[in-house]
Design a protein around this nucleic acid. Structure first.
Lengths: 131, 131
DNA sequence: TTGACACATACCCATATGGGTATATGTTTG
DNA sequence: CAAACATATACCCATATGGGTATGTGTCAA
């Protein structure tokens, strides 16, 4: 078996940097394929193919406008990605807690040399979202 | 050019469902490879390979314990994923706003038939994070 | 109608994948 | 030391990728 298709879900679709760029560009509003090729500096067929993938996972919607096709973001499928990744938020914050501990110890050890180095308080503020 | 390597970044590493399962399992605490093979119902070499990918992007750390190797999550690299995806949170909430509008209209239209069907209020609560 | 324009599709190709199976490496036990 | 155990690696393979280039399809203008 090979890797799962890019059209399997938002996770796979969004793993491609180019497609993230496209979504980022579309975040500002509707854009035609031509606009995107210019913004990305990518050839038109490639852009169309990326858009196809994004369409198949429902990350973009299309609308006909004369001979152009206007694409528009639909963030809904990203919710699954968000919901999964957000559960790990605490983990990387715990990381910061660990770093804080190390910093505290360092500060305490070096306290005689430099007593006014209270730089770890800011980090504590950042990490202070735990329940 | 083929697809970007799975070891390119957290986005690609996490696109694989199996690897997400592994991280989910490790979220409970350190686990040995054997535990994971059992939990995932996957063969041992496959698990080891997935772990290798996760290690290469820094999503897990390893620790030797006798003849076993204990793996442990490190959420830090997921922060990039979170930071990117969270910017779209508003978009799918807007979607819900639209649905809310529809629901409101439906509720109003059907208000004479069923007056105590306040099911849309919960959704409003969920959506109520907008400014 | 013909041509220019905007986009989608059809190919060709080098590449890495993820699962399967066999085997190497390292550790504990008898 | 040998055997059992726990992991890591080395292969083989079918498959989809993403970029490049050429061409089909539909729309507007002259």
């Amino acid at each position: 078996m090979a890797r799962a298709a890019t059209t399997t879900d938002a996770f796979n679709a969004v793993a491609e940097p180019r497609r993230r760029e496209i979504l980022d560009a579309l975040a500002g509003g509707e854009l035609a394929v031509g606009d995107l090729t210019e913004l990305l500096g990518l050839a038109q067929p490639q852009v169309s193919k990326h858009l196809r993938v994004l369409r198949e996972v429902g990350l973009v919607d299309v609308r006909d406008d004369g001979r152009r096709r206007l694409y528009r973001v639909n963030g809904a499928p990203l919710r699954a990605v968000h919901d999964w990744v957000v559960r790990y938020e605490r983990l990387w914050n715990e990381r910061f807690d660990l770093i804080d501990d190390v910093l505290d110890e360092l500060t305490r050890t070096t306290s005689e040399a430099s007593e006014a180095s209270g730089s770890s308080t800011a980090t504590t503020e950042e990490t202070g979202r735990g329940d």
